[in-house]
Design a protein around this nucleic acid. Structure first.
Lengths: 252, 252
DNA sequence: CGCAAATTTGACCAACCTCAACAAAGGTGG
DNA sequence: CCACCTTTGTTGAGGTTGGTCAAATTTGCG
């Protein structure tokens, strides 16, 4: 039972050199993930000009607090979008994995940072010129609109969790959500290798690390899941977890 | 689902006032608020075909729990988007006023309802055919993307409030936000005429009506605001309110 | 003016936070 | 490969914020 190490796979190795991936590599991934197939060459070129490769090691900012808002495509690794409320009070707004696109707001009523969980790299675009470009291409606009709608839906789910759920419901809801995104179904339950720490989970669910730990313990005691090491969780009874997550039963 | 013609009249119950707005009126408002000026006539026509007038009196559903998600343009009045967690546990996701556009999700892990606060009317579009249309028009897509980005930003602010703020900070933050949207600046402070009840505010901030009442009392005692009747609030000291809302000071 | 609904207030309670000590994990260097 | 050590996570005791229940009060409509 040796947990798979995230970091062993991640170190950025393009091909021959030890150099970080070229903008070209990253742009290829970005294009494959989000750009429509029939995007005009001219627009593609403009996008490539706007793209800035970003990368960071565990815990560091991919795209720090910034005067203008940005859109970041995560190519490898995982990241968290954090809002800084005040000294020692952070709120994780969302987690992101390879293939995701994140809108990182400019500093406003609060500061925002996109932080790497483990090594992470991607492409950043300044929002203003990007959305100016988008204005001219319906397919691109449609693609970004779809992503933004999905982000909105996730954000609303989080609002529901933080506003009206108990600690246990929030954690169950978090685990079910992660299972959908990065879970590996297998015999005896869905395997999760969580790239984020207890603190990240706590800051995401509006709780403390102690509460996360205790609630995990309760779910373990109830036989709904098993843990192994820091990051591996096996979800044994998904239906029961979904029930505790306060999910509606099948529509009437 | 009934086809709608240019001349059809709003299917609303009573109209003591002379002229209830026709679908034409509503579409005109919608077009003025969100459609780009140079939208092709053909697209405009298709949109008009998709539009369904909706309206409700205080407390009633404008667009109830539904099998498919919808986009609603609020023409007059105000509304709240509510998620139903379980019997007696509701979470208000957002408030909307005349001119706003709301994405009402289909029933999924939770049920969603768009409810009128006071009399409210608008136009609803089924999301799927609408976003199919959007695919062909960059300007329209751009307009909706902008609205969706704004909704995402608001949703994130709410996440921050619910996750990491105290009751008083949440209320201050709510009041500051409402002041920006529907406040009327005047001598001696910004006047707010809140269309929502204490319960709505509580369900929006993840608190109870009692806590809202108590915190309002504290802010009143601190001289930051004055209340008059159920719905009128005068924000006397905005800077102090913003400070209590946990807003960052001016950028460094 | 009368009344039902909304709001305010008070007393008490519990979920979750805080603080502190302890245990496990997993990386490092011998 | 193992001992060490730092970081991360777990567990326990006690405090606080905000929830719950109940009653008094206000509001604004008819």
């Amino acid at each position: 039972m040796r947990p798979v190490s995230w970091n062993s796979v991640l170190p950025m190795q393009t091909d021959r050199s030890a150099a970080p991936p070229t903008c070209r590599d990253l742009f290829g991934r970005f294009a494959a993930d989000v750009l429509p197939a029939d995007l005009p060459e001219r627009t593609r070129w403009r996008l490539c000009e706007l793209a800035q490769p970003v990368g960071a090691a565990a815990g560091n900012a991919l795209s720090g607090e910034c005067a203008d808002s940005r859109l970041v495509h995560v190519a490898t690794g995982a990241a968290r979008l954090v809002a800084h409320v005040s000294q020692g009070r952070d709120q994780v707004l969302s987690f992101h994995f390879a293939g995701d696109v994140v809108l990182v707001p400019a500093r406003a009523a609060h500061g925002y940072t996109l932080c790497a969980l483990g090594a992470c790299e991607g492409l950043a675009f300044k929002a203003d010129p990007l959305f100016e470009l988008v204005r001219a291409d319906a397919a691109l606009a449609h693609a970004l609109l779809l992503r933004t709608r999905r982000a909105l839906a996730r954000s609303r789910e989080k609002t529901i969790a933080l506003g009206r759920m108990t600690a246990q419901e929030r954690l169950a809801s978090f685990l079910v959500g992660m299972a959908e995104r990065i879970g590996v179904p297998g015999a005896g339950g869905c395997m999760l290798d969580l790239p984020m720490s207890r603190r990240d989970i706590a800051d995401s669910l509006g709780l403390t690390i102690e509460t996360i730990s205790r609630q995990l313990g309760e779910l373990r005691a109830a036989g709904l899941l098993a843990t192994s090491g820091r990051s591996v969780v096996r979800l044994i009874d998904m239906p029961a977890l979904e029930a505790r997550a306060g999910h509606l039963a099948a529509p009437c």
